[in-house]
Amino acid sequence: EPLWIRPDAPSRCTWQLGRPASESPHHHTAPAKSPKILPDILKKIGDTPMVRINKIGKKFGLKCELLAKCEFFNAGGSVKDRISLRMIEDAERDGTLKPGDTIIEPTSGNTGIGLALAAAVRGYRCIIVMPEKMSSEKVDVLRALGAEIVRTPTNARFDSPESHVGVAWRLKNEIPNSHILDQYRNASNPLAHYDTTADEILQQCDGKLDMLVASVGTGGTITGIARKLKEKCPGCRIIGVDPEGSILAEPEELNQTEQTTYEVEGIGYDFIPTVLDRTVVDKWFKSNDEEAFTFARMLIAQEGLLCGGSAGSTVAVAVKAAQELQEGQRCVVILPDSVRNYMTKFLSDRWMLQKGFLKEEDLTEKKPWWWHLRVQELGLSAPLTVLPTITCGHTIEILREKGFDQAPVVDEAGVILGMVTLGNMLSSLLAGKVQPSDQVGKVIYKQFKQIRLTDTLGRLSHILEMDHFALVVHEQIQYHSTGKSSQRQMVFGVVTAIDLLNFVAAQERDQK
């Protein structure tokens, strides 16, 4: 057995438009009618409502009807409940999964919650491996369901041993009777949507819809739904939504950006999952974080739909894509998950301010006199920076000697690579993860907040409520011999709460 199987392995699926269902090699399930009293909570997966979006479509000038398939009504709160249950049931049916076995899954959280929910009911041990950027709410729900959680670096490539995929496979090879159901490759993922989600949409719309818009992560949702719609409703256009920084969209030119990270969760990847059939997507749109969270908040405030950030991405694209539809036509959007997962993220004004998705003037509360002053007023001194090749031991000596707790790590040209902190280095040394002679590049981390000289002290204040420091950066445009230009970030300084307090105190003292 291989040590790991690539999540982007070539698909062996034989589905073709027009091929009889009787030739399918898979076990198919028909939607079942729910009894009045459910035998367990797993029976509350599927049969989610279709809700008309009344205000947002009109606000953006849509002539067509805009409908939302509300997947956050599933038992675990997301569309991923469907595939989690289906993968477990299919693994039980073919004898792969037996009582007492362990389920391991690399996930952005929602599939993990679905699997942990099913594992709690069915009696399996469950280990979820997820990147650090995923919300604390997801972690809390997983723990409450009895799952064990392993976190991995957000910026690790999918084929790196440190990625959530790599760590999951390492655990599988170490733990007896453990299984990775593997949402990236498992046919049960798109089949769950082909058999149930798509049929529900067709039934709820009486077979009449002209466009379907869905955000894409593993691709199982859009693949399964689109294949069924292509068979039953061939005139329906399928629109895929991919965040900026991901590479799922086609044509490839759409993916060209210097951005590699994004805040919206559960969609987009740096590889093409095996289950994603991009041939059934008629057109791709890219979405960005700001519009995703703005539209998610709009869905909550104006439509009462308590959905997550990827739902915002989907609707932001839908109001663009559906401009081509006329009166009497219908566009369906998939709202994948609930706001429950993001209470401390985009639902929080403070978080939105820190990330730059909300401006101070958007909030009406009274601010102190210094709130709208610029960061450049602080008069920061030149920063202490270190090269990635310097040793951890030497870096600790320098920081202690100069009285700093942290320093930016830059390359020879001064471009920011990340940050090192005294606390992080000492804990890594004590844990045996690094040696004093190791290069400081081994303990770089990139989960820090950046701020510009033109940003306000109010925004800085919000950042420092949650973080010990902020890195002050400025952009530099560099022209190359080819005539092309590129933008790079340079370090201007490091600012802490002490710097802000000293500035405010000094100004008030001078005024007296």
Rank of each mutant, 00 (worst) to 15 (best):
I238E: 04
I238T: 15
I238Y: 08
G240S: 02
V241P: 05
D242R: 07
D242I: 02
P243I: 05
P243L: 02
S246P: 13
S246T: 05
E252F: 06
E253H: 02
E258I: 12
Q259S: 02
T260W: 12
T260V: 10
T261P: 13
Y262D: 02
Y262S: 02
E263A: 11
V264A: 04
G268S: 02
I272Y: 09
I272W: 05
V275P: 02
T279P: 14
V280I: 05
V281R: 07
D282A: 07
K283L: 09
W284E: 02
F285K: 02
F285W: 02
F285T: 02
E290W: 15
E290L: 15
E291L: 10
A296S: 07
A296K: 05
R297W: 06
M298L: 12
M298S: 04
I300G: 02
Q302C: 12
E303P: 02
L306K: 02
G308Q: 02
G309W: 02
S313V: 08
S313Y: 02
S313C: 09
S313T: 12
T314L: 02
T314Y: 08
A321E: 04
Q323C: 12
Q326N: 09
E327R: 13
E327T: 14
Q329I: 02
C331H: 02
C331R: 07
C331S: 06
V332W: 02
L335F: 09
S338P: 13
N341S: 06
T344M: 05
T344L: 04
K345R: 07
K345I: 02
F346A: 02
L347G: 02
R350N: 10
W351N: 02
W351G: 02
L353F: 14
L353D: 02
K355I: 04
G356D: 04
F357M: 02
K359A: 08
E361M: 08
D362L: 10
E365D: 13
E365S: 11
K366M: 11
P368Q: 05
W369T: 02
H372W: 12
V375M: 10
Q376A: 02
L380N: 02
S381Y: 08
A382N: 12
A382I: 02
P383S: 13
L384I: 04
T385H: 02
T385F: 08
V386H: 07
V386G: 06
V386D: 02
L387G: 15
L387E: 14
C392L: 12
G393P: 06
G393E: 13
H394P: 12
E397H: 11
I398C: 02
L399I: 10
K402T: 15
F404H: 06
Q406D: 02
Q406T: 14
V409K: 02
D411Q: 02
A413E: 15
G414M: 02
V415N: 02
L417M: 12
G418K: 08
G418P: 05
M419G: 10
T421G: 02
M425Y: 10
M425S: 02
L429Y: 07
L429T: 07
V434W: 02
P436I: 13
P436S: 11
S437M: 14
S437T: 04
D438I: 11
Q439M: 06
Q439D: 08
G441R: 15
I444C: 13
Y445V: 11
Q447M: 10
Q447V: 09
Q450M: 14
L453T: 12
T454R: 06
D455Q: 02
D455T: 12
D455F: 05
L460P: 07
I463C: 11
I463Y: 12
L464H: 04
L464Q: 15
L464S: 08
E465C: 15
E465V: 15
D467N: 11
F469Y: 13
F469T: 02
L471V: 13
L471R: 02
V472D: 02
V472G: 15
E475M: 08
E475A: 02
I477P: 02
I477H: 12
Q478L: 15
Y479D: 06
Y479G: 15
S481M: 15
S481C: 13
T482S: 13
T482D: 07
G483E: 13
S485D: 10
Q489D: 02
V491I: 14
V491N: 15
V491W: 11
F492P: 12
F492S: 13
F492V: 12
D499V: 02
L500H: 15
L500R: 02
L501F: 09
F503S: 07
V504G: 12
A505P: 02
R509H: 14
R509N: 02
K512I: 02
